[in-house]
Computed example of a mutant assay.
Amino acid sequence: MRGRHKPVLFEPRGHRRERRGPPRWLVLLLTGTALGVTAVLVVQERYLPPRLSAAASAELRAELSGLQAERDRLQRDLGEASTRLARTEEARRGLEQELAGSRATIAGLREDVASALAALPPDPRGGAVEVRAGRFSVDGGQLVYDVVLSRERGNPGRPFQGVMQFVVAGDGARGNGSVALKPLPVSIGHYQSLRGSLPLPPDFRPSQATIRVLDRPDGRQQGMRVMLVK
């Protein structure tokens, strides 16, 4: 028998060439990766904020720490201010209560003064300004006075503005005589209580004092009364 014949392959287009280079899927994968990286870089450069350097990042962290510390300090200050405000508000309420009590006390005192004034004897001379009461004494060469004036007539909403002057009679170095002391300004609404002292001439011993109420110094007399000096 003759030897076996090997089959002969028929290739109508000629012999096949061996393929060279990377496979197509690897090329597509690498191309897609490159395009993705490029797109990310473009977006970062054009649309996102610029990336910070290491020094800028450290500076930003330091500023953030400082801002947090400042915020904590402001919160503490706010707490202390709130505490002080609460104390101030409490003190204000206490002062308002004291003021209300003081006003009630003043109102009561005014009623008492009005009652005491009504109980005083009237000025026998009358006049636009009445001398309702007076008391005089001498202390260390000073004439000590305590006088109550009232005003019944006139405009009650407009106080009387004038002066009060004492003419003191008594014994001096040259015998009996009288001395006019310095006029005192007065403002009288419904009533006015005046207390104080005025200097007397040396070696003068007063025995009586004439109270004169004038509309101005050396002006028109509005009231007068004579009282003893004790």
Rank of each mutant, 00 (worst) to 15 (best):
M1C: 10
M1W: 04
G3Q: 07
P7L: 07
L9R: 05
E11W: 08
P12N: 08
G14Y: 02
R16C: 11
R16G: 15
R17M: 05
R20D: 11
P23M: 13
W25D: 08
L29K: 11
G32N: 04
L35S: 13
T38D: 09
A39S: 10
L41A: 15
Q44V: 01
E45F: 10
Y47F: 13
P49H: 06
P49Y: 02
P50I: 00
L52P: 01
A62V: 00
S65K: 04
S65V: 11
S65N: 10
L67N: 10
Q68I: 00
E70R: 11
E70Y: 03
R71D: 14
L74H: 05
Q75G: 05
R76V: 15
R76Y: 12
D77I: 05
L78F: 03
G79M: 08
S82P: 00
T83K: 15
A86M: 13
A86I: 14
A86V: 14
R87M: 12
T88Q: 14
E90S: 08
R92S: 09
R93C: 06
R93Q: 15
G94W: 02
L95T: 09
E96P: 00
Q97F: 04
Q97E: 13
E98I: 10
E98N: 11
L99Q: 13
A100T: 11
A104N: 10
A104T: 15
T105D: 13
T105V: 09
I106E: 07
I106S: 11
A107T: 10
L109Y: 06
L109S: 11
E111C: 07
A116M: 12
A116I: 07
L117P: 05
A118I: 09
A118Q: 13
A119Y: 02
A119P: 01
G127R: 01
E130W: 03
V131K: 03
V131A: 08
R132T: 09
A133V: 05
G134C: 05
R135H: 00
S137A: 12
V138D: 04
V138E: 01
V138Q: 09
G140H: 06
G141T: 04
Q142K: 06
Y145F: 13
Y145K: 08
V147K: 01
V148T: 05
L149M: 06
R151A: 05
E152W: 06
G154S: 07
N155P: 12
P159W: 02
F160S: 08
V163Q: 07
M164N: 02
G170W: 02
D171I: 08
D171Q: 10
G175C: 03
N176D: 05
G177C: 09
V179K: 02
V179Y: 03
A180F: 02
L181R: 00
P185K: 04
P185R: 08
I188Y: 01
S193P: 09
R195F: 09
G196N: 00
S197A: 15
L198N: 04
P201L: 00
F204K: 06
R205F: 12
P206N: 11
Q208A: 05
R212I: 02
V213E: 02
L214Q: 12
D215E: 13
D215P: 06
D215M: 07
P217R: 08
P217D: 08
R225H: 14
M227L: 14
K230A: 03
